[in-house]
Design a protein around this nucleic acid. Structure first.
Lengths: 213, 213
DNA sequence: CTAAAATGGTGACATACGTCCTTACCCACA
DNA sequence: TGTGGGTAAGGACGTATGTCACCATTTTAG
């Protein structure tokens, strides 16, 4: 009995290692693939990068970030889907953005300025994540200029995406924004409730459900 | 007569040098002040940085960026005020942002991705600017890690500002957005026409003029 | 398995906002 | 001195969207 218990335990460990990518049998680690879309890495360099991350699992409805908290981690999603949002004075929820597999997420305002967070991030599904702490990110960028370039580029692209969202909020009608989102992220509509999509688009749930016509 | 002409010409040059900060008599160059809010520079380092910039003057209504153009410069405003905006399918103008003294401006999307610009930037007043070319910015960041840190930080703060604008577009009414803008940039209301403020806030000119009540 | 909660569609109604219009004002320039 | 362009205010009207209410399903949690 004892022996079987240990075996099951080991299997769980191996499974976890596989999922989080710390043991990849002949496959390229998804984080490496992701980073190499922008910069090239040797095996050793990737090992070094990865050693600054920790794996973590979260269940649906669990928080990654809560309002008032000092955010000290940036997350990279291996599996699952999360929402980042804030509550207005009436307690109404407004979606800032969603994030899915291979997206980065954190509260950058709190992360960069080291101020208490104004937002929440929580899991819409059970999630498997890698996170890097503020300190490790600093260390890594200081020791590895390539990674500073990587994050710098990511930051620039993130900024452009935000600008385009503002552009869309200013110029497009609710219906147009709906169509654009559906075109760009069709998967999203199968994974997250419509009322969250409505909140992301800045319209009421009722209005959204009347847009299809 | 000839001599006087030369003298007037020299005076103009000196004036230009003074204005653009290439000749600062015992004063700290405003660009240096600006950069040193984030990183420290020695005299030589600042000289080196400045040598990558060029001064330029633009009159009211002149363009810095036009739609369809490949943007190869980033501008820093010494004096004046500009708007960045785009035109929708109906030719309606939507203000992305304003920029005034000591602000950076360009079309980052075109600048970073090297794609044709979707936006216009033009002068609301006569402007005095410094610009840095794409190539010089690359050179400078490659040779001077400090400046890469500077721009990286700027980029992060820019991103946070954009996120907060989205936040505001989602949660605040037109009236609230108006009050917030008035509180944050009271100068703007003395310098730019109300119809542009309306466009920035995402409401019609008529609606804006009715908000005061 | 069942009860409770969340989701999603729709109707009735109120209202904020856009659109179109006229009027008035200021100021640069002929 | 007049004239035209840019700016701003406000009236009239239509429409898109929010709000509240109700109900039918589906999903979740105990």
């Amino acid at each position: 009995m004892e022996a079987i218990g240990v075996w099951v335990f080991q299997k769980e460990i191996i499974k976890l290692l596989l999922i989080t990518g710390f043991l990849y049998l002949g496959m390229i680690h998804p984080l490496r693939q992701h980073i190499e879309e922008i910069i090239d890495l040797t095996d050793d360099e990737f090992e070094f990068v990865l050693s600054h991350f920790e794996p973590i699992k979260k269940r649906k409805h669990q928080y990654l970030v809560q309002e008032g908290e000092f955010v000290k981690k940036e997350y990279w999603i291996l599996k699952g889907c999360v929402k980042s949002y804030f509550l207005d004075d009436n307690g109404k929820e407004h979606i800032l953005r969603f994030a899915m597999e291979h997206w980065w997420i954190t509260d950058y305002e709190s992360f960069v300025k080291q101020t208490p967070s104004k937002i929440y991030i929580d899991c819409l599904e059970n999630c498997e994540l890698l996170y890097i702490s503020f300190e490790n990110r600093d260390k890594l960028t200081a020791q590895m200029h390539k990674m500073e370039r990587f994050w710098s580029k990511k930051s620039k692209f993130g900024r452009i995406a935000l600008q385009n969202r503002i552009l869309s909020l200013l110029k497009n009608s609710a219906k147009e924004r709906y169509d654009l989102l559906l075109e760009q992220y069709p998967k999203l509509f199968q994974r997250v409730p419509k009322k969250l999509i409505a909140s992301y688009l800045g319209v009421s749930r009722e209005t959204l459900s009347r847009l299809d016509s």
